[in-house]
């Protein structure tokens, strides 16, 4: 249990909107083991985004404990949270969230800049990360010169570049066609195999099926938490020769 990278105990989050209190989370407890691939599912308004934001150190819980890599981050200040995001977490977003008019390489280098790595090391690590997602040859391409799938690969390379233990993917296939979605999910599964703990937030059951554990959130509580045999992300043989689009 102490080895688990994420331990959440009785987490609540209350938003105030004028006079109305909105309870987004009402006591969530969750332990995620190292190297596991967990999907968090839920309808909009279920509290899954709030949970994701807290797990991603973008937000702080109202009460409860959150141990990330053995450290209680629920009461950290903004600077320490930024450091946690930089060192322990990698983010992948639905809309790719790359800096426009900035090369793939520089986008991938971004976390290293804030981590304070020297230029040479930054360059090497970023090139390695781009190689890992199969975009070694497109380091100097700008986002608008890349397809959606390629942009999401750049985002994944950026998430991986600082060698975090945890990858948080928020609807990573939401803006992609089904073929490309499968390619991206294959890549994420590969990462899981190589030991990175992956947490995926989605509302699509097809996508959640690729995970080995499925947590369903409803009305701010965990409704179900089941282990499952993950489906393998593979293109149907008929489409296989198309390659990355």
């Amino acid at each position: 249990m102490s080895d688990a990278p994420i331990v959440v105990e009785d987490l609540t989050k209350v938003y105030r909107m004028g006079d109305v209190e909105v309870k987004a989370l009402r006591g969530v407890s969750l332990t995620i083991e190292a190297g596991s691939f967990t999907a968090i599912m839920g309808a909009s308004g279920s509290g899954k985004s709030t949970l994701m934001n807290i797990l991603g150190c973008l937000d702080r819980p109202t009460s409860g404990r959150y141990l990330l890599d053995g450290r209680d981050v629920s009461r950290l200040d903004v600077n320490d949270l930024a450091e946690m995001r930089n060192r322990s977490l990698g983010f992948v977003f639905q809309n790719f969230s790359l800096l426009p008019r900035t090369s793939a390489l520089e986008n991938v280098e971004l976390p290293l800049i804030y981590g304070g790595a020297p230029a040479k090391q930054r360059h090497e690590k970023a090139m390695h990360a781009l190689g890992r997602v199969g975009l070694g040859g497109r380091a100097d391409h700008k986002p608008n010169q890349l397809s959606g799938g390629q942009q999401q690969r750049v985002a994944i390379a950026r998430a991986l570049v600082n060698s975090p233990r945890i990858l948080l993917a928020d609807e990573p296939t939401g803006a992609l066609d089904s073929r490309t979605s499968i390619e991206i999910m294959a890549l994420i599964q590969e990462l899981g195999v190589s030991g990175i703990t992956v947490i995926l937030v989605t509302h699509e059951p097809d996508i959640a099926a690729y995970a080995s554990r499925l947590v369903v959130v409803k009305d701010g509580l965990i409704q179900s938490d089941i282990r499952q045999v993950p489906e393998k992300a593979e293109l149907p043989p008929a489409d296989a020769e198309g390659g990355a689009s």
Partner: peptide, 16 residues
Amino acid sequence: TREIGVRMAVGAKPRH
């Protein structure tokens, strides 16, 4: 704003 959000998500502190 989006750019600022991305920078913060990957570890930029307010002072950065």
